[in-house]
Design a protein around this nucleic acid. Structure first.
Lengths: 195, 195
DNA sequence: ACCGTTCTAGAACAATCACTCTAGAGCAAG
DNA sequence: CTTGCTCTAGAGTGATTGTTCTAGAACGGT
């Protein structure tokens, strides 16, 4: 792995554990093994540039992960519920470390670091595009597909926070069941629902 | 308002905008008008103690707010959807400031400030107890009521993050519709659903 | 008037922050 | 070997952090 990649990976790991503001550049160089000089050589933009790279990198990785969890299921609802259960298993086994650095960082930097908000928004939009395409293939209209994947991501990010804080699988399980019900309703009868 | 309350309110306002680590004690004294000496007199535990008070205070306030949004509706699903729409309205009108400091802080302090995680967990559990009682009154079993309110809070917290980051009402609207569908499913036929 | 407690007030402190700077190692090209 | 460029290496810098400290103002009880 290249030095700049090692730095970005170390930053992503720290971001998902403790967020952006609490993560020191000294921690990043210690975790990555790279000296400070190398970090500022590869990332002249400093801490914010490293965080940007970390968000984009893990954003792409998680997009593929979620897609690979959903893809095997012919039934959208079953796929969604299984993905949330898989997330709950993973969090429990890793000692309740948040899976997603993007959500953690997005929550705290919106008003302080405008560039990072933009990057997080791009990552979220990428996930929505990818997920909507997947759901359209399963027969949903474009509007329904976008609404469903947006609800999936929202519920997933929120349930991450609750499950980690409560140290319990319950929020992820409940959120998964909830959005699975939404998927069933969208597939069953697109006309009856409200909105 | 007492001095310690003014300090806690100022802290809560800063927490929901920029999180715990990025909020300096100097910012709190400036925003509250209280001098540093007074802050440390009322909160010998320092920054963490101020954050604890802020989380408990706004936790109680938001618990009542959500309950007051849900209560007027005889139909649970309609109440949930209306609450998410109200949240979207509020966020848009306030310039996409996060409504909830608890979610923002919970995401970043879990591994760094154990005491704050505990406080956030107590707040979440309080919300779940209150919401579950409300849903039981509407005819849900205890298990279903707890699952539903847990899904509501998870989706709400996650949609806050997405809506704020994307500067769009869509995530809150989609999440509200999604969980409303879950409520309809629980009420319609408790036996058919998976899980 | 006096005392004790509570609270205000902000200067001062050590520690830590992101970052800069200079020096040199490594390597490919001529 | 020399040159030029990329990257490593970490000591050093000024600003900022959360916190402590001393001094005095405000106030109720006697």
């Amino acid at each position: 792995m290249r030095t700049d990649e090692r730095i970005a990976v170390a930053m992503a790991e720290l971001l998902r554990r403790q967020g952006y503001a609490a993560t020191g550049i000294k921690q990043v160089v210690e975790a990555s093994g790279a000296p400070i000089g190398s970090l500022y050589h590869h990332f002249p933009g400093g801490k914010r540039a490293v965080a940007e790279a970390a968000l984009r990198q893990s954003g792409a990785a998680y997009g593929e992960l979620v897609a690979s969890l959903l893809a095997p299921y012919g039934d959208i609802a079953a796929g969604i519920e299984a993905a949330f259960i898989a997330a709950a298993d993973d969090m429990e086994h890793t000692g309740w470390v948040n899976m997603c650095p993007v959500g953690t960082v997005a929550g705290e930097v919106v008003d302080v670091e405008p560039e990072l908000r933009t990057v997080a928004a791009e990552v979220f939009e990428g996930w929505i595009e990818g997920g909507a395409a997947l759901f359209r293939e399963r027969g949903l209209t474009d509007d329904d597909a976008r609404a469903l994947i947006t609800a999936v991501i929202s519920a997933l990010e929120g349930a991450f926070v609750l499950s980690r804080t409560l140290r319990s699988r319950d929020p992820l399980i409940a959120a998964g069941r909830g959005i699975a019900a939404y998927a069933r309703e969208l597939l069953a009868d697109p006309m009856v629902r409200s909105g």
